[in-house]
Design a protein around this nucleic acid. Structure first.
Length: 197
DNA sequence: ATGTCGATTTGCT
DNA sequence: GCAAATCGACATA
């Protein structure tokens, strides 16, 4: 299948960069595509959060905590880390950095651009509203990503990212502390959440 | 408009 | 046992 998108697809080298906080900002304005059950959906990334590994108390791999769940974080960048939150929500992350450095970027929000009917069906909604692809669990559900996709290649033909040339100036990025990590001590105040204005 | 609460897997104590 | 990188239903105002 040809989506005329090959040249725009983000390469493995993008995900293997090592400044995860910087990459989280670069992801704003990029497009997340999925192709499941014969349906393609896509949206422009508008909100991200960086999780920076063993030294980040908010990261699941803090202190190199290694479990079956967090194993994907320790792989080299370019795969998905998807985990179940509160027993029901699937949260999609992009793994970055090199092998054994467990960094990742949580995708918190998209602007839907393609396959909106499919997104509505997955979200059990009748019409587009603000909540269709806002919030990490809603976003993952809309694009059809669940924990079975943890460890998936992000440069393949099921889940991938594209650069459509959208330029996001630093002045159009709002940085705030991350959401829902009150347990993270000092690290809860780090400005690692980024929103495209 | 704002607040409380339940859903329910994973991992740490 | 309990808290968690959340969401939406329901209550009260």
């Amino acid at each position: 299948m040809d989506f005329k998108s090959t040249e725009e697809k983000l390469p493995l080298s993008f995900f293997r960069q090592q400044q995860t906080v910087e990459i989280a900002q670069q992801l704003l304005g990029k497009y997340l595509f999925t192709h499941f059950d014969g349906k393609i959906t896509a949206g422009m990334i508008t909100e991200t959060e960086a999780y920076t590994g063993a030294e980040d108390r908010a990261c699941h791999a803090y202190n190199n905590r290694r479990t079956k769940r967090t194993e994907a974080l320790f792989a080299a960048g370019g795969i998905a880390y998807v985990y179940l939150c509160y027993g029901i929500h699937h949260l999609f992350n992009i793994v970055t950095h090199k092998e054994n450095i467990p960094h990742a970027i949580l995708i918190r929000s998209l602007k839907p651009t393609y396959g909106i009917e499919t997104m509505l069906r997955r979200r059990k909604k009748n019409s587009v509203d603000k909540t269709l692809t806002r919030g990490p669990a809603n976003t993952a559900q809309a694009v059809g990503i669940d924990t079975s996709h943890s460890g998936s290649d992000l440069t393949g033909n099921r889940i991938w990212l594209e650069d459509h040339g959208v330029i996001v100036a630093k002045s159009d990025i709002l940085a705030t502390p991350r959401i829902g990590i009150d347990y993270a001590g000092e690290d809860k105040n780090l400005p690692y959440r980024f929103l495209k204005l």
